[in-house]
Write a protein that binds this DNA or RNA. Structure first.
Lengths: 337, 337
DNA sequence: AAACGGGTCTGGAACGTTCCAGTCCGGGGC
DNA sequence: GCCCCGGACTGGAACGTTCCAGACCCGTTT
């Protein structure tokens, strides 16, 4: 019904159909479609026309099979909804496209089994490299994957699995910047709503503690873990009457904002899109996510080029000051702009 | 270095390597790996062991090439960050996995050229079906894609491109529910912050107008488009002093909330994750996104089964009442829960 | 004893490309 | 007039699977 003249019915046209239509060999069609200079102009045009007429699309499966590479990069994501991941993906895409790669995403939710199955799917597809944006994938699965194809893990600091490069932000430095900002505003009673034991959250807590100690406030440290119930944890921390709070991430920071009197300053971490949307707008530590994605792609590229040693990149985050922080005793800004 | 005994160095092991290692033919390996009952238990075990030892993974390119199908569904997304899309994807994944398909995502940003290129990539990969979650892809490209492979478009109402099924929510019904809710609370001066002319936003406006007319409030209608600058549009609408506002989407609703006195009730649309996070929490119309994703997958499945006529499904949305709506003159709820 | 049959296994032909080693032809140099 | 060269094109072998037709063996039926 929808078949085009010259095609065997019901089948997608192949390079052979195009060859027949243009009256040349399949080899020449292949050359012409890839823009090989060894094809005469007239014949080239005739081939292109035939391909067009038949609605020919190259078959990446066949091409990948014979070439041994697919020009596809896979990105493995824990959580699509997380804006953190989104921006990393944007960075990966920008760098990948510049080199002619197509980026495909596989999504595993917060489920290790699913994630590792998805990773497997990518490998079966013979992707040329994998960027993992998730701390949920096990090191064994990663190391195994890295044996077949370049793998970079984004967001997980330090060495993680042999053969796997990493790109991360410097959580300790980010935390220091946040606390220093509060100190500079004049705060001394600074609390920390801490994370749940992941390497990142531990580093952030470490940065908080170090900076407090350096400021001679070792005795005034006030740390409470978010645990399961953000709201309750925020209330509990606030019950100690801090003048400012550094929270392990933006969601935790919002919980604090929600329960605190207007004079309490709050800093979050990750600079998610939430930070712009809430009132007051949230001061937060920003990871250079797009750059991390770009860097990850470049590390893949290096591996493809033959590098064998592992690389671990750590990037500096930057504090973005908005309305949720103010000098002690002073009302936060924000509300109606 | 990392080579395993029995494998030609540097190459990924193939089914032939496994066959050699297990002392059988490649055909039998193929049967065994797919769990064919015609393989004797002992031989099957030997083959599995050999495959395991060599670290064999099947090659989907080769399999897809010979079978003519890949068991991969592609999802084309405009915007990863949009939580609306995310939930649709979750629905697609659930349904796809149940049928043994792998889901891969291609991401095109808000750029038609990129989107259509990504669509092309999916087709070249010979995916078995495509779910498009984006109103940015042109109908021509969609129709063309639908000629080779089943295509469903999610979120775009009605007929869109020939051969392309659609799944959408009933925007008009959603808008009616929102306005009816405000009417039932006792509001009469109800404004509408309207969209920018997309079919969806037009239907929402239509629902608002109809409901107002039916309530005998035709003269009290107050419509203002969001346009480019949400903040200014919200302020302009509020300058007319409405007691309640139905906004075309959650972001627009937030802009209204931000500028309105606490007695003004506000309803959004889409029930994004923002609705839960802001204070007051936003009353919003919820599209059954996961179900839409699931339905989309089922439509693909039907097409694969041979259906030829186009189908257009419209699902009913549901109002989720939170803290941003209250009877006239009464302060909205929320703040500290 | 021959024929049959089922369970197990095999070899070769696909699938749609790219790659490689040629072939063919016309023209320029000697 | 012969040789060689380079441009244009071709045919077949790969790539790693699945699919198909059949081979082989052993026990059962006629």
């Amino acid at each position: 019904m929808v078949g085009v003249t010259g095609t065997r019915p019901g089948r997608r046209p192949t390079i052979v159909d195009v060859a027949a239509a243009a009256g040349v060999s399949k080899s020449l069609v292949s050359l012409a479609l890839r823009g090989d200079p060894g094809v005469s102009e007239a014949t080239g045009a005739r081939i292109m026309a035939a391909a067009d007429r038949l609605g020919y699309r190259s078959n990446r499966l066949a091409r990948g099979l014979v070439q041994g590479r697919t020009m596809i990069l896979g990105v493995l994501l824990t959580d699509l909804a997380n804006p953190y991941h989104t921006e990393v993906v944007a960075g990966v895409e920008a760098a990948a496209e510049a080199r002619g790669f197509t980026v495909l995403l596989a999504h595993g939710r917060r489920d290790r089994v699913r994630l590792e199955r998805q990773l497997d799917s990518l490998l079966q597809l013979n992707v040329d490299g994998v960027v993992v944006v998730s701390s949920w994938v096990g090191p064994a699965a990663l190391a195994e994957a890295a044996r077949r194809v370049p793998v970079v893990m984004v967001g997980r600091p330090r060495e993680f699995a042999p053969g796997v490069d990493t790109v991360a932000n410097d959580d300790e430095a980010g935390a220091r910047a946040a606390v220093r900002h509060l100190l500079e505003l004049g705060h001394t009673r600074i609390g920390h709503l801490s994370g749940s034991g992941s390497p990142s959250s531990l580093s952030r807590e470490e940065g908080y503690r170090d900076t407090m100690r350096e400021a001679g406030l070792a005795d005034g440290m006030l740390v409470h873990p978010v645990g399961e119930d953000r709201e309750r944890a925020a209330a509990a921390l606030l019950a100690h009457g801090p003048g400012a709070v550094f929270a392990v991430n933006d969601l935790a920071a919002l919980a604090v904002l929600d329960h605190a009197r207007p004079e309490v300053s709050v800093v979050g971490y990750d600079n998610t899109s939430l930070a712009e949307v809430t009132r007051p707008r949230l001061t937060s530590v920003d990871q250079p996510r797009a750059i991390m994605g770009r860097l990850a792609t470049e590390l893949l590229w290096e591996r493809m080029g033959g590098r064998t040693g592992d690389r671990h990149e750590v990037l500096a985050p930057a504090l973005v000051v908005r309305d949720s922080t103010a000098p002690p005793g002073q009302r936060r800004g924000g509300g109606t702009p």
